[in-house]
Design a protein around this nucleic acid. Structure first.
Lengths: 194, 194
DNA sequence: CGCCAAATAGACCGGTCCGTCTAGTTCTGT
DNA sequence: ACAGAACTAGACGGACCGGTCTATTTGGCG
């Protein structure tokens, strides 16, 4: 990957998380990245195309994290899922608790631009899909009840996480995220025994 | 209230929910409301002032709904809380599942503008505070364990709701919201028996 | 070396942004 | 009826928007 394009995507990752889409001008992005305009429109069709590619780049890291955590045989399946979100929380901390890029852009753009809406939904859905497969393993071990709808449980976790990420962004504090994890995992563990 | 100002706030409620803040130009707002620019800047100091007043107007309705639901003696306390969110879900349906204004503006603006961040957080906090008082009543009846941190449980519910509202906005569908309510209330009820 | 595509560089464009300004109209109190 | 405030009305302005354009530099390959 050309360093210029990489620099733009890296800067976009940071700036889109903080400013969102409409508050981030191309000019501003270029200034921060130290790249002239011609290069930007050489590598990207438009600002929208750029943001979509930033999302793709974001998802590469997310899927790398998911793959690493959810196949970690040293933990039980539910522990792997929890571990993934705890690592994500750590990432949020490094960023200053600005929440989740998908949540931020999803809220801002899902009613404005159909392409963004679909893309972001498919990203969240892909995460939930991965999580649900790990929950299936938990079910096989008896850590979840036979009747559990693992995909619904995975979507639920993702949704609650996104809500807590918003609150964390408002507070600049990790507590909402920790509370959600505690509640979710103690509740699903409770279901198994019931 | 002058009809012009009311018209602007009503239009703002709709348009800010759909477009968010930065994608909604003053010009566009004026066109939709059928109001000339002079009137806007007579009634409001700035676009920011306008949006803050739209939030205030939104909260008037929310608090009216909270007061009506949470004091409804025909239901048990937890049933009142759930009923409030079910009525809110019905409102979302009428709007076409665009989620929650506070969540939308919170995501978009909390990292850009400190005033918005504080205002929106205080709105969510006020809702959680009202809910927590109703949860206190549930605790007195034994519907929640003695040890329950009702304020934390209320914040948790608000946060999970906001996350589900985002997903509902992405899907244009109420299911994430229903799932969150089912999970939350069955879990907190389970805690009481445990 | 010479050649051409890839990439860099930034001036430039029409349009829209938020907000100001002056002028005219309507309402209110006396 | 009349004065002054409240409000309506929209032209206007400087800044910035996303995007295009031409010119130049760089880098790979024959």
């Amino acid at each position: 990957m050309h360093t210029t394009k990489k620099r733009l995507l890296d800067a976009g990752l940071e700036l889109l998380l903080e400013h969102g889409y409409n508050d981030l001008g191309v000019q501003r992005l270029l200034r921060e990245a130290g790249v002239p305009k011609g290069s930007f429109y050489h590598h990207f069709d438009s600002k929208q195309d750029f943001a979509l590619q930033v999302i793709d780049r974001y998802m590469v890291d997310v899927h790398a994290g998911l793959d690493a955590c959810l196949n970690d045989d040293t933990r039980p399946p539910l522990g792997r899922v929890r571990h993934f979100f705890e690592l994500t929380l750590e990432k949020y901390r490094e960023e200053g608790y600005l929440g989740c890029l998908l949540g931020g852009l999803g809220q801002e753009l899902s009613a404005i631009d159909e392409q963004f809406r679909r893309r972001i939904e498919s990203c969240l859905g892909a995460i939930a899909q991965q999580v649900s497969e790990c929950l299936d393993q938990a079910k096989q071990r008896g850590d979840l009840p036979e009747t559990a709808d693992t995909r619904q449980l995975a979507d639920l976790l993702v949704d609650c996480w996104e809500g807590a990420a918003l609150r964390s962004r408002l507070w600049r504090d990790p507590r909402p995220l920790q509370t959600v994890l505690d509640f979710y995992f103690s509740s699903v563990a409770g279901q198994a025994r019931a």
